[in-house]
Amino acid sequence: MLTRTEGIVLNSRKYGDADLIVTYLTSDKGILNAFAKSPRKTKSRFGSSLEPLTHARLSLWGKEQSLPRITQSDIIEPFHRIRENYHDIVHVSMLIEMLIALLPAGIPNSRLFTFLLNILHTVQTGEEGSKEALHLITRIRLLATIGYAPRLKGCGRCGKESLDFYPDSGTTLCSRCVTGPGSAGKPFMRLSNRAIHFYMHSIEWPIHISNRLKPATETIRELSALLDRHLTFLLSRKLHTSKFPVGVK
């Protein structure tokens, strides 16, 4: 069966001599794996259209459940400027790893597809000086879009104001709600008011104007640590990309 769709290449892995298995986020089929014959050969008709982050128009042959074959892939937007920037590709890889790890395959989510496209456009055109904040905002926004964002707006149980984030609850909890059997010594992070305000703005503001948010370096560090701990709890492991050096020593 021939199907046509639009997709963003999330990742690809080598298969055999010159073949690839490509993972896409598609507009109407969610995360989808597909097989490409010989794209690694220099004269392949696929060219660079199967490189990660490429937004392409695809033709697929075969059933979705049994690894369809890519018969055609036409680039809509290559996003190659992101791939050519070391810091951008490391950060965007983190978003991609989060997506693949948290999102089940085959569940359509057109809002997420449009959102990822917006993120890629924003990162590609973003100013070099404000990229660190932008990368943090995109991580927060992505988690919010797929429903895994930590809750920092008051205590997750009673709504009372609280600055203590409990990774194993995925929320801030007040001193009253955290008491009870087994709660003594539960690990938590004390957040600053500034970090919580920035977090709320990151979720609420449209992504294309998020460059107006200018967080302090300390706020970025604080929220990055929070997201790392939150994700480590969700996945029961650290993200591969979090072990990757962002700055070159």
């Binding site: 490189e51 791939r83 070391y86 590709i89 490391v90 020593k249």
Partner: peptide, 14 residues
């Protein structure tokens, strides 16, 4: 490709 380019960027910076 993406992996080769990331490697090249890293080595160049170092």
């Amino acid at each position: 490709n993406t992996k080769g380019e990331t490697t090249a960027q890293y080595i160049s910076q170092i």
